[in-house]
Simulated scan of single mutants.
Amino acid sequence: MKVCIITLHRVKNYGSVLQAYATQVLFNDAGYETEFIDYYRENDTDTYAENNLGQNIVNRLIDAKVHRRFHSILSNIVKKMLIPSMKINNYIFNSFVSNRLKCTEIKYFSYKELVDAVPIADAFCVGSDQVWNSIYNGGILSTYYLDFVQPEKIKFSFASSIGMDNLFETEQDEVQKKLLTFNFVSVREQSAIKMLKDIGITAKRIIDPTLLLPVNKWELLLKKNNIKYRYILVYVFGISKDVEKCIKEISTTLNLKVVRIGTQPYHKLKSGKVSINPSIEEFLTLFYYADYVITNSFHGIAFSVNFNKNFTVLLRDNFNYRILDFLELVNLQNRVYQGSDNSVCRQKINYKEVNSILDYERMLSRQYIDKVLGKINENE
């Protein structure tokens, strides 16, 4: 039985490619033959990212009204500085996808291309990751609602994330219409279950695939640890308040050195050892051997929990819903950084309780996969 999966595997993000890898392993272990539909959103292509690199960073750093006259000049300067790092980053992620994920031979760059050449499979799956986040996607993308799939085929979602605290009212009818064509719907956050229930869609909760894969499967990807001292791993991106204050307080309290994961050369200006553009395997290794983790990333939290690490969470300016949802699930809401009170970093997490919760969630996931598998068997 073959399942084609469509997800965000071409996003240059550690969590995105690792959730895809985990989904592949989970489905293969359940008896599926899997293949990722090699679909690129416009902003997933290397060309798009390169063309917009300088402009995006300048916009984030400087008020557009102040620098409008010099925007083009500044953007080109920044672009030339950062292009080498971007090319390395692209190589790292593209290599992982090529070597670790089984993708369709055809690359798709539009919904029409998919309609004209639908891959052959017994069932089609969308997920995991924020495939239904209409802000990230620039609206509702029919591709991620499997509209291109023939009506007689099985359609299901796997831990798909909406990534927001509510559906836009203007989108509710369209989302409802699209999801009514699914045989099974599962989402990653409890909040998404309520959102979909409000529009008449019944969904199951399945936690992120990276949390469903047992540790011994992740250990197969680890590299040799080249850091010979105890350290706090810092994996922070986007904007979070009090990042440096938090790092200094906790590193001093725990007497640990700082190691950071960075993506741009200027990240080396920050304190501690900075690993720029580590490979996906090196990324996992840094988490595995860390003594403590500071992160504002959902998947940073996921791998901290996978490897039973004590950690502190920094909230970002937006899209914290999935983080808070997961922390509530495993009763770790107290790990969110609360200003100058860093006493939580001295408190060890009760991983006996956390692992028990995750074991139960893994059981629910297996039941869901078995249910879908049974439906595919009936359909043959």
Rank of each mutant, 00 (worst) to 15 (best):
E219P: 02
Y231P: 05
P209V: 08
T253F: 04
L211K: 04
G238W: 10
N277W: 11
E282R: 02
Y235C: 08
F237P: 03
L211G: 00
L222R: 04
K224D: 15
I232F: 14
K228L: 14
G262I: 01
T210V: 12
G272T: 09
P214D: 05
V236W: 05
V259Q: 04
Y266T: 02
T210R: 00
I227P: 06
N225L: 10
N255M: 11
V258P: 03
V234P: 10
E281F: 00
S240M: 10
K223S: 09
L269Y: 04
L222S: 08
E244C: 04
L254T: 03
Y231H: 06
K217L: 14
Y229F: 14
E219W: 00
E244M: 15
G238P: 00
T253S: 15
P209I: 06
L221R: 11
V274R: 02
S271Y: 03
V236I: 15
V234N: 12
I276R: 09
K257M: 03
V258D: 04
I250L: 04
D242L: 13
S271E: 13
S275W: 02
I280V: 15
G262S: 09
L222G: 12
T253Q: 14
G238D: 06
K268D: 08
L211P: 00
L256V: 09
T210Y: 03
S279E: 09
P265I: 08
I250Y: 01
S275I: 14
H267S: 11
K217H: 13
R260H: 07
N216M: 03
E281S: 07
L220I: 08
R230T: 08
R260S: 06
K270R: 13
S271D: 10
K273F: 11
L254H: 11
T252M: 12
S271Q: 13
L269I: 02
L212T: 00
S271V: 07
S271R: 13
T253M: 12
T252K: 15
N216F: 10
I250D: 02
Y229M: 06
I250N: 07
E219V: 02
S251G: 00
N225W: 11
I261T: 04
T263M: 12
P265M: 07
E249F: 10
E249R: 15
L213S: 11
L254Y: 12
K245S: 13
L233V: 11
V236E: 07
S279Q: 03
S275K: 08
I261Y: 01
L256F: 12
I232Q: 05
T252G: 10
E244L: 14
Y229Q: 12
K228G: 12
G272C: 01
P278L: 09
T252L: 07
Q264D: 10
L212Y: 00
T253Y: 06
G262R: 03
N226M: 06
Y231E: 08
K228I: 11
Y235W: 09
L222E: 05
H267K: 03
T252S: 13
L220Q: 15
N255G: 05
K245W: 03
E219N: 13
L220E: 15
I261D: 05
L220H: 07
K270W: 07
S279A: 04
Y231W: 07
L212E: 06
K270N: 12
G262E: 03
S275Y: 10
L256E: 11
T253D: 09
P209H: 06
L222N: 07
Y229C: 10
S251R: 06
V274H: 01
K270Y: 13
